Amino acid sequence: MLNQAHPDPSTARAPATDAIDVLQRKLAARDKTIHVLKRRVKERDDSLATPMTTLEQNIALGKVVAMKTQQLSEERRELQEALAELGRTQAMLLQAQKMESIGQLAAGVAHEINTPTQYVRDNVEFVSKAQRMIATLVEAACTLADAAEPHEATQAAAVAFRRQLKRSKFGFLQEQVPAALEQSLDGLRRISRIVGAMKEFSHPSAGEKEQVDLHALAETTVTVARNEWKYVASLTIRCEGELPPVCCLRDEIAQMLLNLVVNAAHAIKDTLEPGVRESGRIEIVLAPYEDTHVDIRVIDDGGGIPEAVREKVFDPFFTTKGVGDGTGQGLAIVYSTVVDKHGGVVFFETEVGTGTEFVVRLPIDGGDAS
């Protein structure tokens, strides 16, 4: 179906990684300066130099060495600080993007909770009114029982009881009360799932990898993201083969999958047109890969990725959205999470007008095996 592959994921590099490499190369180049100067001193031709010129050269070279050593020390300190700052910035960006995602989803989650809560409240009010009617009916039955004892009032009491029974619409209540209670219970179960998913999604890994059931993680993530996709697409989760648990940073893999699902929903939303195309399709496919990895594939039937921007989609701060609609951190964090933190690969296949499939390939051992 899709025919345009992303460049070889094994050779693709995150811009943040490139920045670190540049800094490290600069540091290595400075390290070589002293070595070259010392080699020049050793390799000079003493037979062509007088003692005075040799002394002058040594003094001059000594000054240069001292100066370069000082420069090297200062630049090493600056580069080390820059590397440390870059690491801190990457961590802050990850947290900021996660909080941004939570913030963007907050309104949707509130809506998801509010809707079932509303009909739970309505149903409880209905049951309360029904209970009052039933109480009245029970009173009438009690009156009938009391009146039945001295036989002369039995007929009048029975007529009054039937009148009250008809007035209370007891048959309707018998039919509707159980249905209302079941709907209320269903609403409460939905609330419980949503709140549970939010708690599970936001639970921090504290930097520790753990064994994770990716299918359960996917279920939790799509529940949290439901308000992003339910109005634009149907979503299914499918497992191919027996899926082993994967050693990973649970919250960061959840964030990565959330980003891919939200991106898929946005890609589909851009293609919808009332009366022409009103809904799309998102599919999450989980499958083992060569006994050592697990694939997470997120497939959408949106508009595809234009060829002109395919090389940039994993770049930090790159976005095709308007100002205020996105930070351009979603896919950059996907790359950083999968490649840098788990030793996996991420790539995509896309076709304009047909859709996109992102493939995340995670090592089962968490990328820590030697």
Rank of each mutant, 00 (worst) to 15 (best):
Leu188Pro: 07
Asp186Asn: 06
Pro116His: 03
Val262Trp: 02
Ser205Trp: 00
Phe172Glu: 12
Val124Ser: 10
Thr69Glu: 10
Arg163His: 09
Val359Gln: 02
Gln118Ser: 15
Arg76Thr: 11
Arg76Asp: 04
Val127Phe: 03
Lys199Ser: 11
Gln71Tyr: 10
Val352Trp: 06
Phe172Asp: 07
Ile296Ser: 00
Leu165Gln: 06
Pro204Ser: 02
Leu249Cys: 06
Thr327Leu: 15
Ala158Thr: 09
Leu257Lys: 00
Phe201Leu: 00
Leu217Pro: 00
Glu351Ala: 05
Ala28Ser: 08
Leu243Pro: 00
Met92Phe: 15
Gly207Ile: 01
Arg13Glu: 15
Pro7Ser: 00
Arg30Val: 10
Leu94Tyr: 09
Leu93Trp: 11
Thr271Arg: 02
Val212Met: 01
Cys247Asn: 12
Ser205Pro: 02
Val334Met: 02
Ser128Ala: 08
Glu112Asn: 13
Val212Lys: 00
Asp340Val: 10
Ala110Ser: 09
Leu105Arg: 08
Ala14Cys: 07
Val124Phe: 05
Lys38Trp: 11
Glu311Val: 11
Ala157Ile: 02
Lys42Phe: 15
Ala91Thr: 13
Val222Ile: 06
Thr117Pro: 15
Gln118Trp: 14
Ala156Lys: 12
Pro288Gln: 03
Gly196Gln: 07
Arg121Gln: 09
Ala206His: 04
Ile284Asp: 01
Gly322Ile: 11
Val232Trp: 10
Asn123Glu: 08
Arg189Asn: 07
Thr33Asn: 13
Gln155Asn: 04
Gln24Trp: 08
Ser205Lys: 01
Pro15His: 06
Gln4Trp: 05
Val276Gly: 12
Asp213Arg: 00
Val124Asn: 09
Phe348Val: 04
Leu86Asp: 11
Met67Leu: 07
Ala147Met: 12
Ala66Ser: 08
Ser336Cys: 08
Lys269Thr: 07
Leu48Asp: 10
Thr350Pro: 04
Lys269Met: 14
Lys166Ser: 04
Thr33Glu: 11
Gln24Asp: 13
Leu83Arg: 09
Leu165Ile: 09
Val109Leu: 15
Leu79Asn: 11
Gly330Cys: 03
Thr136Leu: 12
Lys321Met: 11
Thr319Tyr: 01
Ile134Phe: 09
Gly324Val: 04
Glu357Thr: 04
Arg250Glu: 02
Leu185Lys: 04
His111Ala: 03
Ala5Gly: 07
Thr54Val: 14
Leu79Val: 12
Arg44Leu: 06
Glu242Ser: 09
